[in-house]
Design a protein around this nucleic acid. Structure first.
Lengths: 209, 209
DNA sequence: TGTACATCAGTGAACGCGCGTTCACTGATGTAC
DNA sequence: TGTACATCAGTGAACGCGCGTTCACTGATGTAC
């Protein structure tokens, strides 16, 4: 209204960034950066509260190119889910194959530090209640991750399912109550840490799961 | 384009339902129906995946009148959170005050039936990972509910925090893996049910939480 | 090695949709007389 | 008890916003010769 302009696009100025195309190697790095950013953001806030634009921006890109890398947001979610489980399993593996290694892992798991780093922490309590509503491929990746954790624990201690349920539920509850009832939240973690030794006791009657 | 009509509203026909106003008692029932429907829908799909329109429709109303009952969707979420915890605590209380009552409650808790009835089941595994991102009042109601459950368990058995963490985490994991790995999901619940007797064993060394 | 051109990774505007919230309006309720 | 009117619970259209996805376009990459 103020300025009379043709409706043709303004072609005088280049569109901001000069590097619109990039090496294939660089493109692969971009793809990896998107998956990594998605892994952090999805854990931090859940699949549905993080947009494609925010993920690509966190990876240093714009959202338009996203669908050159992934068929859909769900496809990215599945890949990110696989990645974060693989990373978490690596953390456990890096500590060793024996009972002491697992206990060290669990001591670290049940801390306020882990509670606050939801974006880089264990994907199981971070994503658990979102999963049933996600794409089947995401659910598959999650279930594979849970199975791998059960196996990983079983290798080091008997009764892996009870142990996994306890730490996942404890962390979820500690996070859910951290702001409104910080003392109870800390008490949940402290209580579970103190009971870790019970899992190392020799098997009593049966050791299901 | 096809029909020439004035832009004035069509006043010839009454707007559908004749009963636009209603008894105060009826209005209070409507309010209760909204909270109840919200309690079910929020548990089933999470706070952010359920809209105000869907909730009011489930209560037999339209969305326009919602803000005559509640200041915001968050305010409803807080009230619904309080309601579903109160209902769940009542279910435990209804079974009695002793250890056997709690075990009966837990046996029922750790079932596929409860797993599938997320909308009417325990709010803790249904809402856990959503809570840290919700309104502070919602977080407060949730934390109060968790505290009440810990107290309710402690009244009947020692070690309430480990027990609560186990069942909440186990149910969350069972639900998250139910579709992609149904056998593992069932195994999680079966394993935890089988281990319930361990919680009744006389205290060994310490009984934190 | 040098050149000409096709490819294609990335950009940014745009689309359609659903959401939380607002608002003018309706007409039965409930009250003042 | 009867009447006249103010109240207010509920309706449905509309608003602004953010989202997932699409698309015309850009220009460096990488290849054919």
């Amino acid at each position: 209204m103020m300025m009379i302009m043709s409706s043709a696009k303004c072609t005088a100025q280049p569109p901001g960034n000069a590097d619109v195309k990039v090496t294939r190697e660089k493109a692969a790095q971009h793809r990896g950066a998107i998956v990594k950013a998605a892994g952090r953001l999805f854990r931090a806030r859940g699949f549905d509260k993080v947009g494609v634009a925010e993920i690509t921006e966190a990876a240093g890109l714009t959202h338009g190119g996203f669908y050159g890398h992934f068929a859909s947001k769900d496809a990215l979610a599945a890949e990110a889910c696989g990645l974060v489980f693989a990373e978490s399993l690596d953390k456990l593996a890096a500590r060793g194959d024996d009972e002491a290694a697992l206990l060290a892992y669990l001591e670290n798991y049940l801390t306020e530090s882990h509670r606050e780093r939801r974006d880089s922490g264990c994907p199981m309590p971070a994503l658990a209640t979102d999963i049933p509503r996600q794409d089947p491929v995401v659910q598959k990746r999650y279930a594979e991750g849970v199975a791998a954790f059960i196996d990983g624990i079983a290798k080091r201690l008997p009764g892996p399912i009870a142990l996994l349920s306890t730490i996942v539920g404890g962390m979820a509850l500690a996070r859910a109550t951290a702001k409104a009832a910080p003392e109870m939240s800390a008490q949940i973690l402290a209580s579970l840490r103190a009971q870790l030794t019970q899992f190392t006791a020799p098997p009593r009657k049966r050791q299901n799961g």
